[in-house]
Design a protein around this nucleic acid. Sequence first.
DNA 1: AAGTGGTCTAGACCACTAT
DNA 2: TAGTGGTCTAGACCACTTT
Lengths: 245, 245
Amino acid sequence: MRQRIDKHRFEPAYAQLASILRNQIAEGVYPPGEKIPSESTISKEYGVSPMTVRQAIGVLTEQGLLDRIQGSGTFVKKLSITESRFELNSLREIFQDSAGTQIKVLQLSLGRADARTAEKLDLSVGQRVILIRRILLRAGRPVMFHEGNVRCDPTRPVVEAELSIGPLSELFTGHCDGSVKKGELELIPTVLGETEAGLLGHAPGTPAFRLEYVVYDFDNAPFGWGWFVAPPEVFRLKTHLGLWE
Amino acid sequence: MRQRIDKHRFEPAYAQLASILRNQIAEGVYPPGEKIPSESTISKEYGVSPMTVRQAIGVLTEQGLLDRIQGSGTFVKKLSITESRFELNSLREIFQDSAGTQIKVLQLSLGRADARTAEKLDLSVGQRVILIRRILLRAGRPVMFHEGNVRCDPTRPVVEAELSIGPLSELFTGHCDGSVKKGELELIPTVLGETEAGLLGHAPGTPAFRLEYVVYDFDNAPFGWGWFVAPPEVFRLKTHLGLWE
DNA sequence: AAGTGGTCTAGACCACTAT
DNA sequence: TAGTGGTCTAGACCACTTT
């Protein structure tokens, strides 16, 4: 034990302990694959209660640095590429800076479902849907394209509200409205078509991400689907593994 | 309160409570944006201790269903597209099925760092590096291409071991060896070049994912970098948001 | 049998938010 | 000031693994 826990500090005890353990792992005191001391040992050593130790270890476990095995012990994890997660942080950054972000509506119309939309929204071909096509601009430059389709349901009276600031817009700005129960997302590599390339100011054939979504209401019925397309310089998907400062 | 907690069940109390709350949210008892009862209220209502309630709410919070705001309450979260995470599950599935997976080494050689590798591995151009090119086969069919570069460091004596089953292979099979402290990953859309397309049995120009990595040792020095390339049917990046069964 | 993590109790006090 | 979540105690018993 090198460091002590100062219970009068602003930082809570579990966070101090987590950071101590983290440093010890970084210094090689506990190499990857090795067992760290038991929870009761740490509890006595640092003079904190068992639950506090659990919380500290819980933090590092969630960060993917430790592995708890019941009956056996807590081990320092080896790095695994398959355990990495990619988050859509770059999207959040773009949408939260509402000052520098503009949305240009290219099309907003009442149409009829084609085969693909009918399948996605559980409709028959030809039923009415609302179609929206938009471009997101950052500092006046086009960075992302959006196409969305919403079910045009007579039992849902708030169609007009949806068109202006409804779920499609809120998918953009960070939140769907309360009528969305669940959604599925898929990230697919693609290349820009003629139209998209022109709109985004790139050459056709440029590699890009396509983020496709379907959203469901509280009756588990799909009511919207669509996709966002952005080139990789806009849509960075980076992540870190292991012991970063 | 509709359901009770049975403390003699196999399922722990906190999990039972989490599932009760989850069902109530799904049924619309607490709509998105609304506050759920306070922890102490729930504690009294279900006859469990405050810590047990915290754990239950913690589970749902980690799942992104609830939001805790100190001093204010716990709220049902609205869906947000920017909070989704993509995991590399499809990679794990491939690598864990070691029976159906083969690795074919195309090239394994001692070479000299080009400009890009020198920059990535913090070397001078022309310093020695180990280059490996491989193809991953599933049921005899090529599904993924890998190119990796490892620093050829005279102070690290285990070069031969690395070449055969070292970190490059372990990046594939799920674990890096213990000398890896941290790594960074980036996912980039790309199109298959002539060579890759030929190896993977696709047309050149097919959209694909490129997963690029750099790994660092415990001295924070980069010692390996490379990338995997796979077409989207191999490398599915799907995720779910909100209340799925 | 001994040791480990997993769950749980029944409180306590603190930091923060709303009124 | 009252109510909320955040932290913490000092134990207890259980499920599981190892010896």
